[in-house]
């Protein structure tokens, strides 16, 4: 049998996928043990035990300075920023992206502006945002919005504009007004694309969030990582990074499920 025709079964695929993860884990454990055999106070590759005890302090013990459990305070702060920002992105994309996609006049008027904003590297705007909005929450949320929304808007407007002309003509011959056309023909077909765009934007959104938190903040997952970096606290940084990836994966899976449940028609060909 040729190599290209060998396909793993469902369980086989999961097993194969687990192998590299396990390999990294085992390699880490060996390297960590080796380093600690040489130098029991090594900080670069902390043992699992060291990570558990460091995280236990952050997860279960109240920090005397802030009166909060730091891990949960960081998680809540970061998720709140991300949630508000992605909410604003979604709403503005629905509004602007739909208008741009449905109305050729709007596309001609505003399409260039959206493209111009989309090509600015958002991090380059961070100083401006800090100057304009101060060092509070607004600047951090604004960075994520500016980084993510223009991409989503362009993507959605393109997608809506590419709905086959036949469908738009058909809807009009069935008596649909511009508004009804947007509401009943364009919007439902735009939603799965918007969700797909959001899934792709989660990565950049986390980047902008952690960048903003690293520079000016008093809570947040990114803030904590950059704070403990000064003490070489790999026993906190590594679990935090793992936690961030877990949160990102959970959001991605939730959005994928939402798309499948809410817009089953768009996923027919997947099965």
């Amino acid at each position: 049998m040729r190599w290209v025709n060998i396909r793993p079964s469902r369980n086989g695929a999961m097993l194969l996928g687990a192998i590299p993860l396990l390999a990294i884990l085992v390699t880490y454990l060996f390297a960590s043990a080796a380093r600690h055999a040489d130098n029991p106070s090594d900080k670069l590759l902390p043992t699992p035990g060291a990570m558990v005890s460091a995280m236990h302090r952050l997860i279960a013990q109240v920090d005397p300075l802030s009166g909060n459990m730091l891990f949960w305070m960081d998680t809540a702060a970061s998720l709140q920023r991300l949630g508000i920002a992605l909410g604003i992105c979604t709403l503005s994309t629905l509004l602007v992206g739909m208008v741009l996609g449905v109305l050729p006049v709007a596309r001609a008027t505003l399409g260039g502006l959206v493209t111009a904003i989309a090509v600015i590297p958002p991090i380059a705007l961070l100083p401006i945002l800090f100057i304009v909005f101060g060092l509070g929450e607004t600047a951090k949320v604004a960075l994520i919005v500016i980084g993510v929304a223009p991409f989503l808007i362009r993507d959605l407007a393109d997608h809506v504009a590419r709905i086959p002309q036949e469908q738009l003509v058909k809807a009009q011959t069935l008596g649909a007004s511009s508004w009804q056309l947007a509401l009943r023909v364009a919007l439902p077909q735009a939603m799965p694309r918007l969700i797909a765009g959001l899934r792709l934007s989660l990565g950049p959104a986390w980047v902008y969030l952690i960048s903003a938190e690293a520079i000016a903040s008093d809570a947040g997952l990114g803030y904590r990582i950059f704070l403990v970096r000064r003490y070489l606290s790999m026993d906190v940084i590594i679990p935090y990074v793992a936690w961030i990836s877990l949160l990102a994966i959970a959001m991605d899976v939730a959005l994928a499920q939402l798309s499948r449940r809410g817009f089953a028609w768009a996923h027919r060909s997947d099965r």
Partner: peptide
């Protein structure tokens, strides 16, 4: 010069709404 409900149409493809 605008499509209206007095004229119906069926195209070769893409005549129906895939989401309904």
């Amino acid at each position: 010069a605008e499509c209206g409900p007095d004229r119906g149409v069926v195209f070769q493809r893409y005549s129906v709404f895939p989401h309904l």
